[in-house]
Design a protein around this nucleic acid. Structure first.
Length: 325
DNA sequence: CAGTTAACCTGTCAGC
DNA sequence: TGCTGACAGGTTAACT
């Protein structure tokens, strides 16, 4: 479910509500949501308790809470700096994960898996809840390491001076590439990657090491905007086509982010439980049997990588020798 | 090495 | 009213 716009919406919500909050002891209702945690659930609970949330960062579809020590505070230039534990609370939403901020007394959600009390600086306490129907997502603690390219983790638009942007990311996230909205995304390197592979273009868009944050919805949307077939060999894209594709990816991600993400049902929601409204902005995904908004041809759904691809048969012609299925 | 496939899960919906 | 199979926004480990 959640791709970059949805995950970023969650990240921004957590940062807006929980910064400098102190985490309490996690109630683990389903240990499968801690599957990727290196150790038993008790160690997750013990290590998390008492830490302070200094920042919330994101790489592709992963986000992590930067944790400080007891009494820790964000580093401020000119002030004596406090030691920051090199740890992050990593969150991945998988296909159906949600992170909600709820009053502690709010009734339990149907698929509630973890509840983490957070004592806020204003004296109130809320709960950060992890809700996940399919349990493909989860939370885990991980050490922070320097990224392979040694460049900073991206500062976010509108990031306040109090927000720190450490050039660190969780070790388990280090293999994930930068997303197309990241100021340090390398267009030329992406182009070289396309030329180096035998794969079709959609396969590369979904490869989180090549470019992160894109999933099945936004891959189809970007390909529709760029008038490209999902199976077109990546290495056959011309330089202008590559530029147009990246422009299309950036457009659709930015528009979806501005709309709060895409939601077909109550499965995707922000930290307040509200759905985004970008579903109205979709031109391709889920529109099999409906007319192409651009040319009117009837759009089709085709099997692709054990899921589906949606395209306009007129605007997005199959490459030579291609057969679907 | 790059490229596939199976596995991880629960729920909904269409068709019989 | 079941039952079955297809399908759903993702990633990783284990194959070829």
């Amino acid at each position: 479910m959640p791709e970059l716009p949805e995950v970023e919406t969650v990240r921004a919500g957590l940062a807006a509500h929980l910064l400098r909050g102190r985490l309490g002891r996690t109630e683990v209702l389903d240990a499968r949501s801690l599957r990727r945690h290196p150790g038993p659930p008790e160690s997750f609970v013990d290590e998390l308790a008492g830490s302070v949330l200094l920042d919330v960062a994101r790489r592709g579809k992963y986000l992590w809470l930067l944790l400080g020590t007891e009494g820790g505070a964000p580093e401020v230039p000119g002030e004596e700096t406090r030691p920051v534990l090199p740890r992050g609370l990593v969150v991945h939403l998988g296909m159906s994960g949600q992170v909600l901020i709820q009053p502690p007394e709010a009734p339990a959600e149907r698929h509630l898996r973890l509840r983490i009390p957070v004592a806020l600086p204003d004296g109130t306490t809320v709960e950060m809840r992890f809700v996940d129907q399919r349990i493909f997502g989860g939370m885990f603690l991980d050490e922070l390491v320097a990224p392979a390219d040694s460049l900073p983790t991206a500062p976010r638009p509108g990031a306040g001076a109090s927000e720190i942007a450490l050039p660190l990311l969780p070790a388990s996230v280090a293999h994930i590439g930068r997303d197309p909205l990241d100021p340090w995304f390398d267009d030329a390197a992406f182009r070289r990657r396309l030329l180096r592979t035998e794969s079709g273009i959609k396969r590369v868009l979904l490869d989180q090491t090549a470019v992160s944050g894109i999933g099945n919805i936004y891959a189809d949307e970007a390909l529709w905007r760029a008038r490209l077939h999902y199976a077109k060999p990546a290495r056959s894209l011309t330089a202008p086509q590559t530029r147009q594709l990246l422009a299309a990816v950036r457009e659709v991600l930015a528009e979806a982010l501005a709309a709060g993400g895409t939601s077909f049902d109550a499965l995707y929601v922000n930290v307040n439980g509200e759905s985004g409204y970008f579903e109205r902005g979709l031109n391709a995904y889920g529109r099999a049997g409906k007319p192409c908004p651009r040319c009117g041809a009837i759009m089709v759904r085709e099997p692709f990588m054990n899921r589906s691809s949606f395209r306009c048969p007129q605007c997005q012609r199959a490459p030579r020798g291609f057969r679907a299925g």
